[in-house]
Simulated assay, not measured.
Amino acid sequence: MHEQLRQDAEGAILFDPGVSPQVDGRWFDPGYWRERAALSVRGGGRGGVAVIATPAGECVLRHYRRGGMVARLLGDRYLWTGADSTRSFAEFRLLQAMYKLGLPVPQAVAARYQRRGLHYRADLITQRIPAAQTLAERVVERLLDAELAQEVGALVARFHRAGVCHADLNAHNVLVAPDALYLLDFDRGRMRAPEQGWRIANLQRLRRSLFKLGAAPDGEPAFDQQIWTPLLYGYERTLSA
């Protein structure tokens, strides 16, 4: 796995030439793909994501957007502190590192930033995992049981064992595919030294997400028994393996 940098007057594109050697600025323009009948827009994340049919296969194009109160002021703009610190370049490189470790993540295709003075905007393209649902969708459809919960726990443990801290671990960022489970959206994620504190915080964030989505409609005791205890069992068994 390698990276190649392409710069222009507006910013720069970082891409993996082994995945696609032909990435340019048009790849980050939904209109370019729409004109070629190669675009579909789906929910997920802030403002949704675009699925694009590229020469490298189906990919997901995500534009970085802020959340919360600050979004009203800055929208999709971030403070410029250098190319390597941009959200898109950092996530691209983290995805590459995790993919190299054999962790189940989408393969990074390309990342871009466009700088305007003190701010920049950013985009990321990753390969799409076919025939998959988010864990949140499984919860809503009442398809989360003890067996799947145990698999989710094992998935999280694999990342924690490798020192990967997901900044927003929730049911929308766990993908359930026919062959495996995957983690998505590593914006602000990073590699950290093994430490119980951040691992527990990750798990508690996931717990709140599952409970809020109604993973066990009969209340918290049922949730702990039916979902959370199996999830922790899968987590602890994998973490200590």
Rank of each mutant, 00 (worst) to 15 (best):
D29L: 14
Y120F: 12
R116C: 12
I227K: 00
V49E: 04
E10M: 13
A180I: 08
D24Q: 00
P194R: 03
G234V: 06
P104C: 09
A201L: 12
V49I: 13
A131C: 08
L73N: 03
D76S: 01
F15L: 01
Y182L: 09
A110W: 03
D24H: 03
W33G: 01
D179G: 12
A180F: 08
L143N: 03
W33M: 07
R121F: 05
Q7A: 15
Y235P: 12
R87C: 09
V51C: 02
A108P: 11
V164A: 05
P30W: 09
V19Q: 09
D185W: 01
P130A: 07
V139H: 04
F15C: 02
D179Y: 09
A193V: 13
A157H: 00
M1S: 11
F89C: 08
R34E: 14
A50Q: 01
V156Q: 02
K212F: 08
Y235M: 09
L73K: 02
R72G: 02
S240H: 14
G163S: 05
L169V: 02
A50F: 07
V23M: 02
A167Q: 03
D218Y: 13
R205Q: 11
D187Y: 03
L39D: 12
R192T: 07
S40A: 15
C165Q: 10
V60I: 13
R42D: 13
A111F: 10
D29S: 14
L39Y: 13
S40P: 11
C59L: 09
Q196S: 15
G234W: 06
L5Y: 05
Q226F: 11
G68W: 10
L144H: 00
M69G: 12
Y64E: 09
A108G: 04
V105G: 00
L118I: 11
V174S: 02
E220Q: 07
R190I: 04
H166W: 01
D24N: 08
G153L: 00
R199A: 11
A37T: 14
G44P: 04
L239Q: 12
Q196T: 15
V164L: 05
H63V: 14
L155F: 02
R192A: 09
V152Y: 01
G31C: 08
W80L: 10
P230Q: 14
V140G: 04
L210F: 01
I227H: 00
T134V: 07
D145R: 00
D179I: 08
R26Q: 07
R190C: 08
V51Y: 01
Q107L: 15
T238Q: 14
R192Q: 10
G153A: 05
E195R: 10
